[in-house]
């Protein structure tokens, strides 16, 4: 479980995060949503320890990140898997080498053990025959699946995904969403996903934190987001005509 308490982050005079307090539960897909510029990416990078924050605290299963030494922080990061928006695969390595990379860095497994583990996770993300391809030869959806495979190969405790669906067609996006949710439940990982894709919100938002202007504007789940009267949230969620109609139908049915 990750607990965030009164988190503040500024760049120069610009106050980006203005005191966010929330928690992300183990075995659940936790979504951070909000409009562009709401502070989602900065919040995620603070969670990952890529940005230093000025105020508040983040604790990972009781370990306060800011009170750890640099070496302890690096050790903690070995328990973190991350799926970047652009996948961030190492372009000089094949897909199999990319997935094997965390094993080579952090384990003392033999080559055959590492190969077996790579085969297993690549099968898990439905990429049985892509071992020898270079990342540049893979489609956007394949690259995302490789990034997920690389993130989970070392059995992380925490999985972070920055807009895992960006640039993907709706069908592939659902496949990626479902894959992340299955893996989260299967391995009891604390998963935090940064997204502004409403399909993801409805599909896998077991916990949703809505940010606006660096503040938490709302917190709930995909089951409660339809019923909320919070204007900021409804403005965002029902910004498309399709969702407006869906909401009207939902409210009509439940009246």
């Amino acid at each position: 479980m990750i607990i965030v308490d009164d988190l503040h982050k500024s760049f120069g005079d610009t106050h980006i995060l203005k005191g966010i307090t929330t928690s992300f539960e183990k075995g659940k897909t936790n979504l951070i949503i909000g409009q562009s510029g709401s502070g989602k990416t900065v919040f995620l990078k603070c969670l990952l320890g890529l940005f230093e924050y000025e105020g508040g605290s983040i604790s990972y299963d009781g370990k306060n990140f800011n009170q750890l030494s640099e070496d302890e922080k690096r050790d903690l990061r070995a328990d973190i898997g991350m799926v970047f928006q652009g996948s961030a695969l190492f372009d000089s390595m094949t897909i199999a080498e990319n997935v094997m990379f965390p094993l080579r860095m952090f384990t003392t497994q033999s080559k055959s053990e590492m190969k077996d583990r790579v085969d297993f996770v690549l099968n898990r993300v439905n990429l049985e025959n892509a071992h020898h391809k270079m990342p540049s030869e893979a489609s956007g959806g394949m690259q995302k699946r490789v990034a997920i495979a690389r993130a989970i190969v070392n059995n992380p405790k925490y999985l972070f995904c920055d807009e895992p669906n960006s640039g993907l067609d709706p069908k592939t996006a659902i496949v990626i969403d479902n894959l992340i949710q299955e893996i989260t439940a299967e391995y009891q990982i604390t998963t935090v996903i940064n997204s502004h894709d409403m399909n993801s919100v409805m599909e896998i938002g077991e916990k949703i934190v809505f940010l606006k202007d660096g503040l938490k504007a709302w917190e709930g789940s995909n089951k409660t987001i339809f019923r909320t009267d919070n204007e900021v949230v409804t403005d965002f969620v029902y910004s498309s005509n399709l969702f407006k109609k869906v909401r009207k139908m939902y409210l009509d049915e439940n009246q």
């Binding site: 990952l48 320890g49 890529l50 922080k73 690096r74 050790d75 903690l76 990061r77 070995a78 973190i80 991350m82 970047f84 928006q85 652009g86 961030a88 695969l89 190492f90 372009d91 990379f101 965390p102 860095m105 952090f106 972070f160």
Partner: peptide, 14 residues
């Protein structure tokens, strides 16, 4: 630019 350095840092690699 392609966040590969961030990926290394997140993994706990110097």
């Amino acid at each position: 630019v392609t966040e590969q350095i961030d990926a290394l840092e997140v993994m706990g690699i110097n």
